[in-house]
Design a protein around this nucleic acid. Structure first.
Length: 926
RNA sequence: GCUCAGAUGGUGGAACUGGUAGACACGCAGGACUUAAAAUCCUGUUCCCGUUAACGGAGUGCGGGUUCGAUUCCCGCUCUGAGUACCA
């Protein structure tokens, strides 16, 4: 039979499912290997060809590791809580669960037909109560923990309470809110229950706090910083404004330093680590307190250049700073209020677009330099951000360009503080030279000066060395329906956890998926949804909750008494290889690392980092095709279409055309007429008898008609071809436009591979004869090459190598079992269906191929006794001369010098020098 | 602006530690088979000059450098993509 991919693929997909071929065990003698894909949100649009790219790569790796004798965990699941299903529910009234399950069914069908070796018995869905029970459970552990800075880890809140009861607040070094109280043990015991709980909330790793949030009115919810792009929601593109709300937050900042340090221990792409470093944004400096003149208030600033403190000529507050109203003098009140009003009106976008304009207002108040008591003007300006540091800066115009421009604009003094500083036209941020105009620092250099200033500030209690992080605590709540309920009820306005035995706290049914009339979240609509002791929290958890620990659930997905058993976690430990997109750099990948560290702190998991190695697959862009409609003299569109090469000669307008009716940029005219009724009578102006379409690279999207669906390709060419073609496209990490041109080449390769096992009439025909040297050489070349390629995730080059091997073996007319059976094993990770079929035809046990032994590379087969030396003259290759590899360099040089072919090029001259690199090259220098 | 990644034929890409640039595939051209087409197979295909051919010259974004030898290393620049942005 010829290569019948449809029957073969159906047969083996069914076989794998029926026989649970890819079920992983939790206890074996084999070494373990955990290959994970970022699980998808099951959207209504289904998969396009870009989605499986990473899954194919991870599947090849997983299958390869199985052949190498590893017990491989390669699971898949769904991040199935999320906004789109809820938006759809609002529009149609359809329960998000129904939509979600439909979409999951589509995803599953699409995934199945590509032949992935997932262990589906471990599937997880974040929206399933068996799963979110444990998401809620982790929330409860966070609520019951605080961060002990002395131990540098999370600790039970009961320890903190015990400390308060015996020693009061003294001696606690915690990551906590800023407004914590100081109290003795007696005072603590005298506190009311409410006072105690209020105080404890300031320490808990998840806590309530009034915070400025990104409020998206159109979506009716708050968004995390990473869900907001340029002032608009990432999903849907709706405007986002700043609003103050009581919100659940996660004290991720407690882990800032560990999140930063951990990056040095993991094998991730450098750009991704860099993104996380920038997001964490550590800066080392000092905090300095400037007392306000004639007031008890103090302005605290953070600076990375505390050495420039004698160059401070003004201090600037953010317009939103809490002391602004209080410190504005009556004379300046009008100016300041007008400025604040103006700032508020500016949208985020305006503020960004407008970074060059200098603006600000004088408050009328003065602060005092803590080191010399000098009077300094206090200003407000919108270039100071309320959300960073203390919302106040000490301005040093000689060293900072923004401060310089501000000083020049408002005619404030600029003081040079280093002897070599050049400040005639702009600020000079140098650290070179020695200080001048700087009191006790005069004559010191940067290092000594900085140390001296900090020591002095500390001695008078006006400042200290400080590390500041840009990262903020993560807001952990959404005013939405389709998410995990927070396992909390409120009594007297204070949050209490429900009992563990009450988990999971199920999502209640509601009539409409909209906020209540009083503006409460949708959960406010639920009737009979009340805790015995109070009202439930009405927010749900954000999208990243369920994905922040899911890799542990796969280890033991059925467990009813724990999120995963200790044995399972101790066996699988962490993910060895994680493949997914870089768009999750500062969201999912940061939150997951945070929760992982927390779970380690409470003794539930063993590893500091959850993902040892991570690879970002590139984005697959769309490649749009265009036809050009002829415009008539009146400017109206006609029914005539002009081929792309001729559009300069006509007046035309481009129209997106479905890429599925275009082949190699040539339009299928019949299909075009059938595509849309209004094109049925279309006429064409052709070039060379063909209609050629225009091309543009855009995002892959329905509205550009450039979506290529894996279903169509799987139907037309089969899963094996699709898998290999996606890999053949280029390096995995590189982004590239999808182009189906060339898929034929891969299909032809598989057919050629099939024909190696068959005679001209397609009868299975494999010989048991001993292979020749050339046949062994081809085989061992590919064994070595593919192994090297897979280990460095260079899948595109191994596909090429397979083609070379099959071409060679075809030329050798090789049908020897000894060669072909090994070839079947090494090709299995790439094209598993055809290989299973041939494995069975070869007479081996059905379905055992996935666990066969990977052939061992034997270098003896590649040993050559002759090498065709490239002979170059002055580095330019001229000719080849075959010589024995047994010859030494001197012998080679002698032969080359006198060789007739070489003499031709020497033109009578004698070589200055002959460089011989054995087995590589000969270079003659004239 | 800053950070990172990248630039190789008509196209996707290969060249792994400085050693034959363009593997493999698509496309294109020519040919075989066929009444014809599809499919399949064979040959050619970096560019320029020249030509039956051998051969000659140029060539990995641009300009320099190191080296016997550079797509690979170093310096300077241009362009493209991604991230980030008044971060004190």
């Amino acid at each position: 039979m010829d290569y019948q991919f449809k029957e073969i693929e159906k047969k083996w997909q069914q076989f794998w499912a029926d026989n649970h071929t890819f079920k992983a065990e939790n206890n074996t003698d084999k070494p373990k290997y955990y290959v994970l894909d970022m699980f998808p949100y099951p959207s209504g649009a289904g998969l396009h060809v870009g989605h499986p790219l990473g899954y194919i790569a991870s599947d090849i790796f997983a299958r390869y590791k199985r052949l190498k004798g590893f017990n491989v965990l390669h699971p898949m699941g769904y991040d199935s809580f999320g906004l789109p299903a809820e938006q759809y529910a609002i529009q149609t009234g359809q329960h998000p669960l129904v939509t979600t399950e439909d979409n999951i069914a589509t995803y599953r069908r699409q995934l199945d037909q590509i032949g992935f070796s997932f262990d589906w018995s471990r599937e997880v869905r974040t929206s399933s109560p068996d799963y979110y029970k444990w998401t809620q459970w982790i929330f409860m552990q966070l609520f019951n923990s605080w961060y002990n800075k002395d131990a540098d880890k999370a600790a039970p809140i009961t320890e903190l309470v015990a400390h308060f009861e015996s020693k009061g607040s003294a001696g606690i070094n915690a990551v906590c809110d800023e407004d914590i109280l100081s109290f003795t043990a007696e005072e603590w015991k005298a506190f009311s229950e409410a006072e105690q709980q209020t105080e404890l909330l300031k320490y808990r790793l998840t806590y309530l706090r009034e915070s400025t949030v990104n409020w998206c009115a159109a979506l009716g919810t708050v968004l995390a910083n990473d869900e907001v792009k340029d002032g608009f929601s990432e999903r849907g593109g709706y405007p986002v404004e700043q609003k103050k709300m009581m919100q659940w937050s996660m004290r991720i900042t407690a882990y800032a330093q560990r999140l930063l340090e951990g990056l040095d221990t993991i094998d991730w792409p450098e750009p991704l680590k860099e993104m996380q470093r920038n997001w964490i944004g550590k800066s080392v400096g000092a905090s300095v307190k400037f007392p306000v003149e004639n007031s008890s208030e103090v302005i605290e600033v953070f600076t990375t250049r505390v050495d420039t403190i004698f160059g401070v000529t003004f201090v600037v507050l953010a317009p939103e700073h809490e002391l602004v109203a209080q410190l504005t003098t009556p004379e300046q009140k009008a100016t300041v209020e007008e400025y604040i009003a103006k700032t508020k009106k500016k949208s985020e976008l305006d503020r960004m677009a407008d970074t060059k304009t200098v603006s600000g207002a004088f408050t009328g108040s003065y602060v005092l330099n803590p080191l010399n008591g000098e009077k300094i003007q206090l200003w407000i300006a919108d270039y100071v951000l309320a959300g960073y540091g203390t919302g106040a800066v000490m301005a040093v115009p000689s060293g900072d360009q923004r401060d310089y421009l501000f000083a020049k604009h408002f005619d404030l003094p600029v003081v040079q503080i280093l002897d070599i500083q050049k400040i005639d036209t702009e600020a000079d941020p140098t650290k070179e030279g020695t200080y001048i105009n700087s009191d006790f620092m005069n004559g010191l250099d940067y290092k000594a000066g900085t140390a001296a200033v900090i020591a002095k500030l500390e001695s008078i209690g006006s400042g200290k060395a400080k590390v500041n992080f840009r990262m903020r605590d993560a807001i952990f709540g959404r005013q939405r329906y389709w998410g995990e309920p927070v396992p909390v009820y409120f009594k007297n306005g204070l949050p209490y956890l429900i009992k563990e035995s009450e988990l999971p706290l199920l999502l209640p049914e509601i009539d409409k998926y909209l906020p209540t009339e009083t503006g409460e979240p949708p959960l406010g609509r639920a009737t009979d949804w009340k805790h015995a002791e109070g009202e439930y929290e009405l927010s749900t958890m954000p999208g990243w909750a369920g994905s922040s620990w899911y890799w542990y659930r796969y280890m033991d997905a059925q467990n009813e008494t724990d999120f995963a058993s200790k044995e399972a976690i101790d066996y699988w430990k962490a993910v060895d290889l994680y493949i997914g997109g870089s768009e999750h750099a500062t969201g999912h990948l940061l939150y997951s690392r945070f929760w992982n560290k927390f779970l380690k702190d409470i003794g539930k998991t063993p590893e500091e980092e959850p993902f040892k190695k991570l690879i970002n697959q590139g984005m697959i862009q769309g490649r749009s095709n265009f036809v050009y409609r002829l415009i008539d003299a009146e400017g109206k569109g006609t029914n005539t279409f002009v081929s792309h090469g001729l559009i300069k000669e006509y007046n035309t307008s481009p129209i997106h055309v479905d890429v599925n009716i275009v082949e190699n940029d040539v339009l299928n005219q019949a299909k075009f007429k059938a595509w849309r009724p209004d094109f049925a009578e279309a006429e064409f102006i052709l070039e060379n008898g063909k209609y050629v379409c225009g091309v543009e690279i855009e995002k892959m999207s329905k509205r550009y008609y450039n979506v290529v669906n894996p279903d169509d390709l799987a139907q037309r060419y089969g899963a094996d071809t699709l898998r290999m073609y996606e890999m053949f496209l280029g390096p995995l990490e590189q982004s590239k436009p999808w182009n189906t041109n060339g898929i034929e080449g891969v299909f032809k390769f598989l057919r050629k591979f099939w024909k190696l096992f068959h005679d001209a009439d397609f009868n299975f025909n494999v010989s048991d004869a001993e292979p020749t040297k050339a046949e062994f050489k081809s085989l061992h070349k590919i064994i070595q090459k593919v192994e090297q390629d897979i280990e460095r995730f260079s899948f595109n080059t191994s596909v090429s190598s397979f083609m070379i091997a099959v071409n060679e073996l075809t030329d050798l007319k090789c049908n020897k079992r000894a060669i072909l059976q090994d070839l079947v094993i090494i090709l299995e990770p790439y094209a598993p269906h055809i290989c299973e079929e041939l494995w069975e035809l070869l007479g081996y046990t059905k379905g055992k191929l996935s666990y066969a032994a990977y052939p061992t590379f034997n270098p003896a087969y590649l040993v050559e006794d002759e090498f065709s030396y490239p002979i170059s003259i002055n580095g330019k290759m001229k000719t080849n001369i075959a010589l024995s590899l047994a010859l030494g360099n001197d012998e080679i040089e002698a032969i080359i010098r006198s060789h007739a072919d070489v003499q031709k090029y020497l033109d009578g001259k004698s070589p200055k020098k002959v460089i011989v690199v054995k087995g590589r090259i000969v270079n003659i220098v004239l």
